[in-house]
Nucleic acid binder design. Sequence first.
DNA 1: CCCTGATTCGC
DNA 2: GCGAATCAGG
Length: 159
Amino acid sequence: MPVLSPTWTDERIELLKQHFEAGLSCREIAADIGVSRNAVIGKLSRLNLTRSRAVEDRRLERSLAPPARATRAVPRLQYEMLATIYGETGAPVMAGPIDDTNRCSLLELSENRCRWPISSPGEEDFCFCGNAAPDGQPYCAGHSRLAYRPNSRARVMRG
DNA sequence: CCCTGATTCGC
DNA sequence: GCGAATCAGG
């Protein structure tokens, strides 16, 4: 990977459009791509992808949809998870209390097994964590910590 | 004050 | 073209 930041490559623009069409907020898009929020907005404007000036509408939709879940953990984005796992220097930490003795294949996955991927798809050793996943959670306790951020201002989205 | 997206304008 | 600063709305 180059040291310099190539700003807006075709791939980043694709991600931008994809996330935009997916309905993600500019903040989320920016976090996932790894640029500032203004950079995303600026680029969207240059691409004529702005949703006019209907910011209010989107905010209202989210505000009017608070079904239960007082404190909710929001899923981490790929960019953030990778940053958490590999750290700033690129050193693979993964020092969490995660057992690697229950790994299983895709076919062996079940509703109560951790779906955290081990290695990469297509690789010979590609498999899943396979640890016990409480509730209907997709991950075990250790990997949930990586996949979710208990943080966030999910409280009630204020008013 | 926090958030959001949109526009402006110097680079 | 880029994006921080700024603006505007909630």
